[in-house]
Amino acid sequence: MKSVIQRALASATLFLFLSVTYAQQTTQVSTTVNPSEELYQHYKQNGIDAAIKMYDSSPSKGDEYTLLSEPLNVLGYRLMDEGDLDAAEKAFKAQIDEYPNEANPYDSYADLLMEKGDEAGAKKNYQKAIELSATMDDAEAKQQMLEASKSKLAMLEGAGSDLQFLKGKWNTKMFRIQDGEKNMTQQGSVEFSANGKNNVLTGIMKDKNGDYVGTRIIAYDAIDEQYDMVFAGNSPNGIETSVLKIEESSPQKVVFTEAYEENGKKMMVRHILNKASGDIAWEIHELKGDQENPVAEMTFTKQ
């Protein structure tokens, strides 16, 4: 995992050499040394193998583990940024050898493997980082480590892509089901777009006249393995939030539950999306205890 704020690694050390020559005394003081910068300069002059050998014999070797600001971690990402992936790999492997029971060295090495196109190796090391993050004592660092590794692994494994088929512009119809009767309550359109990582969908909804109705955002949460959804529109209800959990996902059908609060009461509905025809037949069932009752239907027709 790459640090946004690097630790101040400089330490002032005073070396006092006393010598008596012709009755004169001399004192020499060293300058401040940054272990990461020293490693990098040694790499530039002598190569990565010599830099790692120098590190192995330096006072920094075996110091208390400092997570993101470890000298080898900083060096590895710097070499990655410069495009020397083979040298960066050696730095990250050396960090794993030094701290085999820490999570971040595996996460960093996985980042390198992703850069080299080794997705299988990256998955293995992200998973190792996730497992080791559970052993971390610092609660904040533990959460950051888990979020970093698990979100990257989720994207590699395609998690969060269950609803990507919604991308595009659709004509929509909404029907309410009450006492066995189905009546259309709304007609219009929605256009969904995705972010670059395909883990966030944004839908702009309009009525049949083309006037704005609202915005729906669906974002995948890799930590809790669920989707967080928000809706904001013309109504005075503010922002409405809910949580979606996938129960079934295939090219023909997606089923998920939605949990939310309404007037202080916890509510749960099940959505059943049949998409075999290219269009979407969308059923909504209210869940109350052991009962499941259809309350609404929607049709999505691709424009």
Score class of each variant (00 low, 15 high):
residue 37 E to L: 08
residue 43 Y to D: 00
residue 48 I to N: 03
residue 118 D to E: 08
residue 127 Q to P: 02
residue 53 K to L: 09
residue 161 S to W: 05
residue 70 E to M: 03
residue 27 T to N: 11
residue 161 S to C: 00
residue 127 Q to Y: 07
residue 40 Y to V: 02
residue 41 Q to K: 03
residue 136 M to E: 13
residue 103 A to W: 12
residue 147 E to A: 11
residue 142 K to L: 04
residue 79 L to W: 02
residue 143 Q to N: 07
residue 118 D to G: 08
residue 133 S to A: 09
residue 111 D to P: 06
residue 27 T to C: 10
residue 127 Q to G: 09
residue 21 T to H: 15
residue 44 K to A: 11
residue 46 N to I: 09
residue 75 L to A: 01
residue 141 A to C: 05
residue 76 G to V: 03
residue 118 D to M: 14
residue 76 G to S: 05
residue 117 G to I: 15
residue 129 A to Q: 07
residue 150 K to I: 02
residue 121 G to M: 08
residue 50 A to H: 11
residue 153 L to V: 05
residue 30 S to G: 05
residue 70 E to K: 00
residue 90 K to E: 06
residue 53 K to G: 03
residue 133 S to H: 08
residue 138 D to M: 03
residue 84 D to E: 02
residue 25 Q to R: 00
residue 148 A to Y: 13
residue 142 K to Q: 09
residue 120 A to Q: 07
residue 139 A to H: 13
residue 122 A to M: 02
residue 70 E to A: 12
residue 97 D to W: 05
residue 59 P to S: 06
residue 136 M to L: 13
residue 84 D to W: 06
residue 79 L to R: 04
residue 155 M to A: 01
residue 57 S to A: 09
residue 55 Y to W: 05
residue 80 M to Q: 01
residue 88 A to R: 10
residue 40 Y to I: 07
residue 33 V to F: 04
residue 144 Q to F: 13
residue 148 A to G: 09
residue 157 E to H: 00
residue 77 Y to Q: 03
residue 84 D to R: 01
residue 62 G to C: 01
residue 22 Y to G: 10
residue 26 T to G: 10
residue 34 N to C: 01
residue 64 E to Q: 15
residue 122 A to T: 03
residue 69 S to T: 13
residue 143 Q to S: 14
residue 22 Y to S: 15
residue 79 L to D: 03
residue 120 A to S: 07
residue 59 P to Y: 02
residue 125 N to W: 10
residue 25 Q to W: 08
residue 124 K to W: 08
residue 71 P to Y: 13
residue 84 D to A: 00
residue 147 E to M: 03
residue 101 N to G: 05
